[in-house]
Lab assay of single mutants.
Amino acid sequence: TTVKLGDIKVTFDNPEKAKKYAQKLAKIYQLTVHVHGDTIHVK
């Protein structure tokens, strides 16, 4: 599962960890989390 934020891409083996990371980023940057299959976009 890949978390994308602009040019930053972080890949996790564990989808749950990816989701938590995405939510953490979203909170920090006051953005929202969008899940598209294996990719989680923070924008």
Rank of each mutant, 00 (worst) to 15 (best):
P15R: 09
T1P: 04
V3L: 04
I40L: 08
V42C: 04
V3W: 01
K27W: 11
K27S: 11
V42K: 01
N14W: 05
H41S: 07
I28G: 02
Q23Y: 13
K20C: 08
G37W: 05
N14L: 05
T32W: 06
K27E: 14
D38R: 06
Y21G: 00
K19W: 15
K19M: 15
L25C: 11
L5E: 02
K24F: 15
I8W: 15
H41C: 12
F12M: 02
V10F: 13
Y21H: 03
V3N: 02
V42Q: 01
T11C: 12
K9H: 12
D38W: 07
F12L: 02
F12A: 00
K43M: 14
L31H: 04
T32E: 09
A18C: 06
K24Y: 15
I40C: 02
K27D: 13
G6A: 05
K9T: 14
I28T: 07
T11V: 14
Y29S: 03
V3M: 02
I8F: 15
K4E: 07
K27L: 13
I40N: 01
D13H: 10
A22E: 00
K20R: 12
H41G: 02
H34M: 10
K19T: 07
K17M: 12
K20Q: 11
A26W: 04
T11E: 08
T1L: 08
P15M: 11
K17S: 11
I40S: 02
E16L: 09
T32R: 05
V3H: 02
T32D: 06
K4H: 12
L5W: 15
Y29P: 04
K24D: 08
V3Y: 02
K43V: 15
K4G: 04
N14P: 01
K20W: 10
E16Y: 09
T39I: 13
V42R: 00
K24Q: 10
G6D: 04
K19D: 04
F12E: 00
H41W: 13
T39L: 10
K19Y: 15
T39N: 04
D38K: 07
F12R: 00
I28V: 08
V33Y: 07
A22S: 02
K20F: 08
L5N: 03
K19S: 08
F12N: 00
E16W: 09
P15D: 05
D38Y: 06
Q23P: 00
G6N: 07
H36D: 14
K17G: 06
A22F: 03
L5G: 02
V10E: 02
K20I: 10
Y21D: 00
L5K: 03
V3S: 02
A18E: 00
V10C: 14
D13T: 12
V33M: 08
I40K: 01
K19H: 13
A26M: 04
T2A: 06
H36Q: 13
K19G: 05
K17H: 11
K27V: 09
N14H: 07
L31W: 05
D7S: 15
A26I: 04
N14G: 04
K19I: 15
L5H: 08
K43P: 03
